[in-house]
Amino acid sequence: MRPADLAREHGISTQAIRNYERDGFLPPAERTPTGYRIYTGLHASALRAYLALVPAYGHPAAGSVMTAVHSDRLGDALAELDLGHSQLLRDRETLSAVREAVGHLADGAAGTSLPALPGPRSVGEVAHRLGVTPATLRAWEAAGILTPARDRATGHRRYLPADVRDAELAHLLRRGGYLLDHIATVLRQIRTAGGTGELSAALDSWQQRLTSRGLAMLTASARLDDYLSLRPVPPGRLDLKAT
């Protein structure tokens, strides 16, 4: 097979095929005596696996999975997939908690049932919980999304449980692709227990994104399994299918 043969199936460029091979997302191709690449069904299967992994886990994770497979580090590849599933589960749990909070707001309750750390907490602790940098939290504060108090003696930010709740919600909506000014509006609604129509629409949209991502993970798992079944088993590695 030529690069054009692989590219045609997915509507991508032949340069993209060469780039994927260069970056280790495809196994190395043999060459003709004149230097042209020779691709096989193995490469076609690897390409299908990689392109299916991208919408499910993101470009960085998809690349990490494929390079780990090609380095015979199957455990590392599976660990990368586990991280993606763990994040999806965390998003689902947080979304469920936010929906419950919206229900309380709709009933006129002042509080929410979002899971939150006991406070006060530092900006570093909250950033670690969310998997973001402290600079990200400070940017959210500048955008009016977060409003942590300051310690009078040190001037350091102090995140109380309600602030952690706001950070969790902001993180969820940010992952859903919402802009900072939109998230700030949603958080103001939560704080004032005002109308929840805009928040409900945002959560419905994010629910659809989570469902699509979960389905994409199923497809990616099948494509990756197909590819692994075609790869030769390196010496010393257990062939799980044979057992």
Rank of each mutant, 00 (worst) to 15 (best):
R99P: 02
L230Y: 06
P235Q: 12
L95R: 04
S96W: 01
P115H: 04
T211N: 11
R90D: 10
T67Y: 08
R175V: 03
G124S: 15
A127H: 05
Y39I: 06
L179F: 10
Y178N: 01
A7G: 09
R90H: 12
D82L: 14
P28C: 09
H156V: 13
Y57P: 07
L47F: 13
V123M: 09
D91V: 08
A149C: 13
A49G: 03
Y57M: 04
H59T: 15
A193L: 02
T94H: 01
L81K: 01
T219R: 12
H128P: 10
V123F: 09
T192R: 12
G177D: 08
P232M: 12
T185L: 02
L74N: 09
A16F: 08
G155L: 15
V132H: 01
R48Y: 13
R223I: 00
L74F: 14
A170H: 10
G236Q: 14
G24T: 05
R48I: 14
A201Q: 09
T243P: 01
L203R: 06
D225G: 14
A4G: 12
L78N: 13
E141V: 01
R92D: 06
Q189W: 03
A7S: 02
S221E: 14
R213L: 14
I145S: 02
R174P: 08
Q207N: 04
R213G: 14
P161G: 04
L210Y: 03
P235M: 11
E141L: 06
N19E: 15
T32K: 07
L137G: 05
R152A: 15
D23Y: 14
Y36R: 05
L51N: 10
V132K: 06
L95P: 05
A29I: 03
G131Q: 03
S13A: 02
F25P: 00
R121G: 06
A202P: 01
R223D: 10
V69Y: 10
P232H: 11
L130D: 00
Q208L: 15
G194W: 00
D163P: 00
H43F: 03
G41V: 00
R121K: 09
E100C: 08
A61G: 05
V186P: 02
S122R: 13
S71G: 11
L114E: 02
G131M: 00
Q189M: 06
A4K: 12
D76M: 10
R31V: 04
E141M: 05
L169A: 12
A109Q: 01
D5S: 08
V233E: 06
L53N: 07
P55N: 07
H70Y: 07
E198A: 00
R157E: 12
Q15L: 12
G144W: 09
E168Y: 07
D151I: 07
S221C: 14
L81N: 04
P115I: 01
T14A: 08
A193Q: 14
A222M: 11
G75I: 08
A79Y: 11
T67G: 05
L130M: 02
I12L: 13
A220S: 04
L172K: 04
H10D: 14
I145P: 03
V233F: 01
Y20L: 15
A16P: 08
L26I: 09
